[in-house]
Amino acid sequence: MSDVGNDLVEAFAEIAADLRGETRAQSYEIPSDLMTPERIRAIRRRVASSTRAFEREFHVPARTMEAYEQGRRRPDKATEALLRIIDKEPDAARRALVS
């Protein structure tokens, strides 16, 4: 079995032991400012009625936003920065992007 296969078997064994109460699995805090698909969708919905409307206003392709919102892709650092600006100051982002 490959290393990946062994890692998966080990991970599932740990999950099963935790579910049976035999051990306590390690947990992780997710930073509140993490750009998750849910957060990206919430930002977009707050400022635009659709991914197409978001594209018209903020120049991020609708298909790209759909991929971010569905978790198929992660935004790069520049797009993440733009999303943070849009989240905090959507009108400032709109003014900055006027052609």
Rank of each mutant, 00 (worst) to 15 (best):
45 R>D: 15
23 T>H: 03
47 V>R: 04
13 A>D: 13
81 A>Q: 09
68 Y>T: 10
47 V>N: 06
96 A>R: 07
58 F>L: 04
90 P>A: 09
73 R>F: 02
9 V>F: 10
66 E>V: 15
11 A>Y: 13
78 A>L: 14
26 Q>M: 11
29 E>D: 14
43 I>V: 06
65 M>I: 12
34 L>C: 05
54 F>A: 06
65 M>P: 01
23 T>I: 12
13 A>G: 10
94 R>I: 07
70 Q>N: 15
23 T>Q: 07
51 T>H: 08
31 P>R: 13
29 E>C: 10
31 P>F: 12
94 R>V: 06
98 V>C: 09
89 E>K: 11
72 R>A: 09
90 P>R: 09
85 I>N: 05
99 S>K: 15
60 V>G: 00
19 L>T: 06
35 M>A: 06
37 P>T: 01
56 R>Q: 11
60 V>E: 03
14 E>N: 10
39 R>C: 02
17 A>C: 08
19 L>E: 15
3 D>G: 15
75 P>D: 01
1 M>F: 15
52 R>A: 12
93 A>M: 07
39 R>D: 01
92 A>N: 11
49 S>F: 05
15 I>Y: 10
2 S>W: 02
57 E>C: 07
46 R>Q: 02
74 R>L: 09
24 R>E: 11
13 A>Y: 04
20 R>E: 15
73 R>S: 08
64 T>Y: 01
5 G>L: 13
79 T>F: 01
48 A>P: 14
77 K>Y: 05
44 R>D: 00
83 L>Y: 01
58 F>D: 01
39 R>I: 02
33 D>P: 04
77 K>C: 07
28 Y>W: 14
92 A>Y: 10
78 A>P: 00
14 E>M: 10
61 P>D: 11
37 P>I: 08
32 S>C: 04
4 V>Y: 13
5 G>N: 07
14 E>I: 12
81 A>C: 05
40 I>Y: 01
64 T>W: 02
53 A>D: 15
19 L>P: 04
7 D>Y: 08
27 S>Y: 11
97 L>A: 04
92 A>D: 08
83 L>K: 00
49 S>A: 13
7 D>I: 12
19 L>S: 06
56 R>F: 10
62 A>N: 00
